[in-house]
Write a protein that binds this DNA or RNA. Sequence first.
RNA 1: GUGGCCGUAGCUCAGAUGGUUAGAGCGCCAGGUUGUGGCCCUGGAGGUCGGGGGUUCAAGUCCCCUCGGUCACCCCA
Length: 421
Amino acid sequence: MSELRHPPGTFDVLPADSAPWEGLIRAFARVVEAAGYGLILTPTFEDLAVFKRVGESTDVVRKEMYDFEDKGGRHIALRPEMTASVARAFIQHRPPLPWKSWYAGSNFRYERPQAGRFREFHQVGIEAFGSADPDLDVEVMSLGWEFYTAAGITRRELLLNSLGDGTCRPAYRALLLAYLESHRDELCEEHQIRLEENPLRVLDCKKPACQKVVAGAPRQLDHLCDDCAAHFARVKNGLGALQIPYTVDSKLVRGLDYYTRTTFEYAGLGLESAQNALGGGGRYDGLVSAMGGPDTPGVGFALGVERILLAVEAEGGTDRLAAGRGLDVFVVDFGGSGGDAGRDLTALLRAAGLRADRAFDGRSPKAQFKAADRSGARLALVVGPDEAAGGTVAIKDLQTSADQVSVPVADVVAEVRQRLG
RNA sequence: GUGGCCGUAGCUCAGAUGGUUAGAGCGCCAGGUUGUGGCCCUGGAGGUCGGGGGUUCAAGUCCCCUCGGUCACCCCA
């Protein structure tokens, strides 16, 4: 047992296991880049203030922030989510609108790890700034939906809600608060205390006590202003037109305070409810201005990579994500040239664009072939004294075990290509 | 942050009631095959029994502490 380990709540993904991760991110990039989203890289850590804007009353800010003071006395936080970082980058650089970006990277929340939940976890996502058009909400939601299909996840559902905007939300909030206060003693302990801070959070409290009260509570959807109602109608219309099934859930609040109007969540139906949130997002028209930027609408989502992998696993394995990796050839050098032949042939193959590996240390033929077998390469290319004398390379098909053939060095690349089909 | 369960070889795990040099399977390395993988046979390397303290003639085994893992609550990705 080594003294040095990864920190609690983190993990290593070794090359032998990383194919699904690689395939998933590639599949995501393919889907969103086809819709005009470009990769964005932002720092893994930011000034704590960047993230405080996601909402002082949220668990993310209140108790899950992975923060510390750096050597310059700055209060730093590892990013708990990406939207605030992207918004900060938008405000700092002011790119032309509309501005569409996608990302893949680590996020951090300081909490006790558990199934499907880590201190460092990974997300892929998109953010689109500069348009309040409900059709953009639909585009964003549909891209997530399409990606799940590409990843092989069919057992999922899209939950949809509208939280209203600066016009109708305060009025609804007051209405809800008044209702909840009249039932205060029936709420769970936590919400009796924190009710005023964010009454909306009571809506998705899982405690039976709160649920009972919520059942009779006024619904935001019944109190949307005309603009928000029209926006929501257009969103539903667009999803219908694209044949994306959805379920309206008036209690869907989500864990971040910056959402306005559209909020949505993708839930995996094949997973335990404690970790069935595959991803979520929504519109955040007030976020950029709240962070000190120009009044700019935006909409986006983030999907949890660990959760997606769990869902893919639950639906028959990650093989389809992992396709396309592996070596073409493995070079075996039986000696006679001091290792020159193997070294030079490997370089020749790689320069020709073939995926080639080899054995080192002049190991025994048996050991080298064993390595060739394990490497997963389709072909073994053999060089040794006999080949050196004749200026040839022996090609052996490791899958069919057919008799190996000898070809002139000059023809090796062409011959290999033909055999790989 | 609170609670349950669990830490023995790289991995999965045996090691009743404490008792001489801590085992197996898989994996790895080598040989059987002086130029040929997968199967088989033989052999080998690899362990401060998570760490520290205590009880005892004697601790992998019992007690305390600690670290780590895992699951759950809260909440989410």
